[in-house]
Simulated scan of single mutants.
Amino acid sequence: MAEPALPTEALGLVVHAAGDVRLETVPVRPPGPDEALVEVAYGGICGSDLHYWRHGAAGASILREPLLLGHEVVGRVRTAAADGSGPPAGTPVAVHPARPDAGDGSVPYPLDRPNLSPAGTYLGSAAHLPHTQGGFVRHLALPTRMLRVLPAGLPLRTAALVEPASVAWHAVGRAGDVRGRRVLVVGAGPIGALVVAVAVRAGASEVVVVDLHEEPLERVRGLGASRTLLATDTEALAGVHADVSVESSGSPAGLATAVEATARGGRVVMVGLLPPGPQPVPVATAIARELELVGSFRFNDEIDAVIAALADGSLPVDRVVTHEYAVADALTALATALDPVASGKVLLRFAD
């Protein structure tokens, strides 16, 4: 019996310019010898997807050509790689969106931290030209090295959180050992919520969360947050004295809050994506308290630990997902994800 023909086109979500995102038919690239064709089941909408749509840029990555959005994707292998590498057809997989690349070697970086490789690419990113096209499409050819086999019993809907949970896991790792320590999380959006879950699992004695709105704070209480505060409660924030703060709001005000609420000798982890250029930060406070300000960018092999923790139930994160839309309703999904009061993580469903 002949193998079914590979699809040549599929519906995808493409941003053309700031404010111009379209659901349109895009060509499906035939897989190379070391690539599998993945049928995408779910894609999670990330803040960077929203930034490309609303502003034509995500941080320092400027949109210069049409970009297929999406990097938080899971699905099943439709066609296995011709060279025999990777999982067989039918296998459920998560996608590690990064492809490390040292470039011409002129820019040094620590080799044990491939997320910092200067020419590295990421699905759905405008960091380089041509852009690295994303995964918000039903059929996607990917190198097998980017695929992670999902354990039996782990629902694909839950596994859709693998990528953002890995970002959160990496951020908590950048904080150091949080066992028995007080952790402040600034911003209760999807990444902040996942940081809460990871910090609780890692043994933090107390996890305090601050946000501008009550609704996202209500959501993180179910993830193990010990205490929640509104950002307007400056008196309570001044008394937090966190050993470690994780800034996940991606705003200058959020970073200032993290600095002001961190105890002397503490550490501030910056995972939220701030705009490019100089930012107003209370540096004098950071100096006087000998705070350590450290960046947190994407992740490396943490994805494997995240998959294991999701599978064994030690990282319960299902409540982070608040909405699910069929891909045909992708524009509505984007609008929903743009409202942090109404939504946490919003998923696109590509396959039934």
Rank of each mutant, 00 (worst) to 15 (best):
V186M: 09
V186P: 06
G187W: 09
G187M: 12
A188L: 08
A188G: 00
G189N: 14
G189R: 15
P190Q: 10
P190N: 04
I191C: 07
I191E: 01
I191H: 02
G192I: 15
A193R: 15
A193S: 08
V195F: 11
V196Y: 05
A197S: 02
V198N: 01
V198R: 06
A199S: 07
A199V: 14
R201W: 09
A202N: 13
G203P: 14
S205L: 09
S205G: 08
E206H: 09
V207E: 02
V208L: 07
V208G: 01
V209Y: 10
L212M: 10
H213A: 01
E214D: 05
P216G: 00
L217D: 01
R219E: 05
R219I: 10
V220I: 12
G222Y: 15
G222T: 12
L223N: 05
G224Q: 12
G224L: 10
G224C: 08
T228C: 06
T228W: 06
T228N: 03
L229Q: 09
L229K: 08
L230V: 07
A231I: 02
T232L: 00
D233K: 00
T234C: 03
E235C: 11
A236E: 05
A236Y: 07
A238G: 11
A238F: 09
G239Y: 12
G239L: 10
A242W: 10
S245F: 09
V246R: 10
V246E: 02
E247Q: 07
E247I: 10
E247C: 05
S248T: 11
S248K: 14
S249W: 11
G250P: 04
P252S: 13
A253F: 03
A253L: 08
G254W: 01
L255R: 02
A256K: 01
A256H: 05
T257E: 00
T257V: 01
T257P: 03
V259H: 07
V259E: 08
E260P: 13
E260Q: 12
T262N: 04
A263N: 14
A263W: 14
